[in-house]
Amino acid sequence: MRLSPAARWSCTALGALVALLYLFPLYWTYVSSLKGPGELFASPPTLWPAMIDFSGYRWIFTRENIPRYLLNSLWISAAVTALTLLLAVACAWGMARLRSRWIDIALLAVMLSQVLPPALLATPMFILFRQAGLVNTQAAVVLAIVTKTLPFAIVVLRTTFIQVPGELEEAARVDGCTRLSAIWRVVLPVARTGILVTGIIVFLLAYGDFVYPLTLLDRPALQPATVGLFSFIGAEYSDWNNIMAFACVFVTPAIAVFLLMQRQIVAGLTAGALK
């Protein structure tokens, strides 16, 4: 539908207003993290800190646990991403190349496994990992989170791989590749954008995961930042400038990656949900 120039500009103004209003809580997080304890509770609140105070950020890096939490988050998410991509690329390629009733059933099972609430799977998983002697290891958390990210990655990558023409694989085989090594030589290079975006979304999902590390780890030295953040907000800790600074340091890398790859991430999410 065509809009008149005047209507177009009013729409742009309205759109900007909607985005600003929506993102205000995020803005408030950053502003609060830059206030000192006194200004934080000033009434009326200041929309921009009268005096920028980095005490919240100093607090984070003097608490020996918080840098540890952040590193744990990075490490757990990296391991989840690697394992998810390894399993999902293989599975999705197999599914894209095979067409049969069995594959349809397997895909249905994979999609249905996505709907199970992690908070409810946490109990049997906790018991099973305890029997295996894996409780209080990050390996258990990685395995548990992969159950969440793997189905998503399989669904997205399968739709990507279906678009890779079978002739490419044939050509690689003529050149001496096996069907297995053709994945490495042909499929990965051709679909690398799709795989990269899937990896980023998987990383973000793992980065925000809370239930599995909460139930499977009780040593702060092993816990990720989500559980670390919970130990402050759950305990009615009221130095909100410190907590907001922690939250900012934790999410800024995620927001930065998102802003850089917004278009591809949106496409990947849509493919995961509607294909």
């Binding site: 065509r2 809580p25 809370f210 989500t226 907000i233 998102f258 278009r263």
Partner: peptide
Amino acid sequence: LRFSGAAWFRGVILAGWILPLLVVGAIF
């Protein structure tokens, strides 16, 4: 609707959804 910035504003709003829920909990 076709106005300048529509796709960009729409995309930027999704930043709320990529936040870890624990962070959303802390903010609210």
